[in-house]
Amino acid sequence: MGRVFVAGSINMDVVATAERHPKIGETVAGRQVLYFPGGKGANQAVSSAKQGVPTSLIGRVGDDAFGNELKAFLGSQGVDLSLVKETPGAHTGTAIITVAKADNTIVVVPGANARVDADDVAAASLTEDDVAVSQFEIPLPAILALFERARAAGAATILNPAPAMACSAELLDLVDILILNESELGFLTATEFSGTGNPARLVEAVRSLSTGDKIVCVTLGERGAIALIDGQPLPIAGRKVQAVDTTGAGDCFVGAFAAQLASGNTIPYALAYANTAASICVQRMGAGPSMPTAAEVKALLSAGRPPRADP
């Protein structure tokens, strides 16, 4: 079994729940304020670790109460924190999240996450059996450095380009597997998607990103996912569930997928597994704490629950 190395953000999520999202300039009454461990890097690391795969997180927290709380939580989830640094004089990353009718809006204040650099990833000792994962909530030079190390070691690389932003062709060339949602796909391909799901348009957009042997997977929420592998589209059927909070669902997918890849499973199986894990995640509040265990995912898979139609 290989290991998963996740370089990414570590945040405290401050969640306000309300009946609906406010319009610009409007104030609405909220229901409650909740605090959850989060950050895309931390979420993906927890998702991977809870599948029973050795998982190391590379990142930074501040020298404050949030940082201490987050390290305690991550350690309790089985995440290796030996590559997480405490940054004096910086606050821990914070996300301000509004949840209404299971949909969310998020404002992220990076804090210590903005200090992650190439030196932070230098201590990661990768082998050809390992998987390196990152997202766009830490500086791009750190991601480039990690993927260069991974490529040199023969390890697989997974990029979740979120939040969407422009990046260099040099970085994309180092990516083996690109996992993104419709919004991010639209940004990277300058294409507008309605969210209703048009497989032909999705595949056309995905092909423009699938250079060389790169695998591209677009997550579609309750409609499942669609991947392009060796030039052929592979639809992953959705699962109809009662969503409570979609925060962290994409991170759950990425982490669970990376864990299955590090375990030596096939890409199609890993995608179906990750989609099932994400369907469990959205039925719980919070990001980090909502990640399911391997036992929960396998129980749902073995139950033979009929999936929804392909997207």
Rank of each mutant, 00 (worst) to 15 (best):
L70Y: 01
Q32M: 00
Q32E: 14
S47P: 08
S48N: 11
Q77C: 15
A42I: 02
E26D: 13
T27M: 07
R31P: 00
T55N: 06
A45V: 00
F66N: 15
G8S: 09
K40E: 02
S47T: 11
P22I: 15
A18V: 09
P54A: 10
A45F: 01
F36D: 00
S48G: 12
V33E: 05
K40D: 04
L57D: 03
A18N: 10
V28E: 08
G38C: 03
D13H: 14
N11T: 15
G30P: 05
T17P: 04
E26I: 12
G25P: 09
G8Q: 09
I10K: 13
D64S: 13
T17V: 12
R20T: 15
Q44A: 09
L74D: 04
V53E: 07
V53M: 12
K23H: 11
Y35K: 12
T55Q: 05
L57W: 07
Q44G: 06
A72F: 00
T55W: 00
S47W: 04
L74R: 02
H21A: 14
E69Y: 01
R60C: 15
P37C: 06
G59M: 03
A29M: 11
G41D: 04
G78S: 12
V33Q: 05
G39V: 01
A16S: 15
G41Q: 05
M12A: 11
L34W: 00
T17K: 13
F73W: 05
G62T: 08
Q44I: 04
I24C: 02
G38T: 00
G78R: 13
V79F: 03
E19C: 02
A72D: 10
G30Q: 07
V14E: 12
D13V: 15
I58C: 12
V46M: 03
A16N: 09
K71C: 13
G67C: 06
F73T: 13
V14K: 09
V79Q: 01
G62D: 01
K50H: 06
E19T: 13
V15R: 12
R20A: 14
D13S: 14
V61H: 00
G41C: 04
S9E: 11
G41A: 05
G78T: 12
K40I: 11
G75N: 09
F66T: 07
M12R: 14
T55A: 04
P54C: 00
V61E: 00
S48Y: 05
V61Q: 00
N68A: 14
E26W: 09
M12K: 08
N68P: 00
F36S: 07
F66K: 06
K50S: 10
V46H: 04
E26G: 11
